[in-house]
């Protein structure tokens, strides 16, 4: 691990190098301008220091050419920075389609994580190196923020909606995980480690450590179980009562609503339709579905959505 005295911290993700390149550029221009300014004020201070009997200095001319030249140079500089920063930002906020999805729930003061194979952990995240990982995150209470310095990634985690974060770790190792949005008394304890394993080690870890009994269900299986337990399949399954729309192939596609508008069935839409089923009625159906708010918790919601996604061959493997 790089020591804290080195200019850059450990680089352990694909974007880390790109972010550091901008950082180094910024450090260079900062040092340049700071030294330039310090040099100028010192030189002017000494060279033009007050002398007895010297005539009063002349009034400066009102002439904006120096300001315009300076402003022009700065404009070019900041446009470069803006463009470069935006490019890397776009890259680091767009998860690739084949990313492995891990579900994250933040609560005061712990991180609950669930792997696609069903294994759960708290405050420690095991991931394979060399594979894009997407975190789908929500909070049970206040706003948190998921931060892995070695990956140079961070995203706020909000109650009542889903946020996404993706990264691809480049080398095995143990990296710190922090909550960076102040969330109450034990805010500074809300963190842990990200353990990056080789893909083979990760597969081994999935099956052996932690006891076989724990890693029973995948989120998709848990979602399917809930789907049955809560009675969803009575209306939403093909061949049953036909009271609700079929869910196969819905995820990620456009849905026509009763009021004539259209929405894309994404995580937020599914979430709203489960919690508050009357909000957006699909065209051709009656508003008969019960409200599940207060019945399913955040973890279960994530599982139900994972299951519905799986019906469309979604990203959840």
């Amino acid at each position: 691990m790089n020591s804290v005295y080195s200019l850059l911290p450990e680089q352990a993700s694909t974007v880390a190098g790109q972010v550091d390149a901008i950082y180094l550029f910024l450090v260079a221009i900062s040092v340049f301008f700071t030294l330039l300014l310090a040099g100028l004020v010192l030189v002017f201070g000494i060279k033009y220091r007050r002398r007895e009997g010297a005539p009063a200095p002349e009034r400066p001319h009102e002439d904006s050419s120096l300001e315009l030249i300076g402003g022009g140079i700065l404009l070019v500089l900041v446009l470069v920075l803006f463009g470069w920063g935006a490019k890397v930002f776009f890259h680091s906020t767009r998860p690739p389609a084949d990313a492995m999805e891990i579900l994250v729930t933040g609560k005061q003061w712990m991180w609950k994580l669930q792997h696609p194979q069903g294994k759960r952990e708290i405050n420690t995240l095991h991931i394979p190196a060399g594979r894009p990982i997407q975190l789908t995150m929500t909070s049970e209470d206040v706003i948190h923020s998921f931060f892995i310095p070695a990956f140079r990634v961070k995203q706020d985690v909000l109650p009542g909606r889903y946020t996404r974060l993706w990264f691809e770790a480049t080398k095995p190792g143990k990296y710190r995980l922090f909550c960076t949005e102040y969330c109450g008394t034990e805010h500074s304890m809300m963190g842990g480690w990200v353990n990056v394993l080789t893909p083979a080690d990760y597969e081994r870890w999935l099956v052996d450590s932690g006891g076989a009994a724990v890693a029973s269900e995948t989120p998709v299986q848990a979602g399917e179980r809930l789907f049955t337990q809560l009675g969803c399949q009575t209306c939403h399954n093909p061949g049953s009562g036909q009271l609700g729309p079929h869910l196969a192939g819905v995820y990620g596609h456009t849905v026509k609503l009763a009021d004539g508008t259209e929405v894309v069935a994404d995580d937020e839409y599914l979430r709203e339709s489960i919690l508050n089923s009357q909000a957006k009625i699909v065209a051709g159906f009656q508003p008969v579905m019960p409200v599940f708010k207060g019945i399913v918790n955040e973890d279960q919601l994530l599982q139900l959505i994972a299951y519905i996604k799986s019906l469309s061959g979604g990203a959840s493997n």
Binding site: A258, D259, N276, Q278, A279, K280, I281, P287
Partner: peptide
Amino acid sequence: QHLRHAFEGANPN
């Protein structure tokens, strides 16, 4: 029709 949909779809919250 429009009004009916609004009343059906409105969330009490």
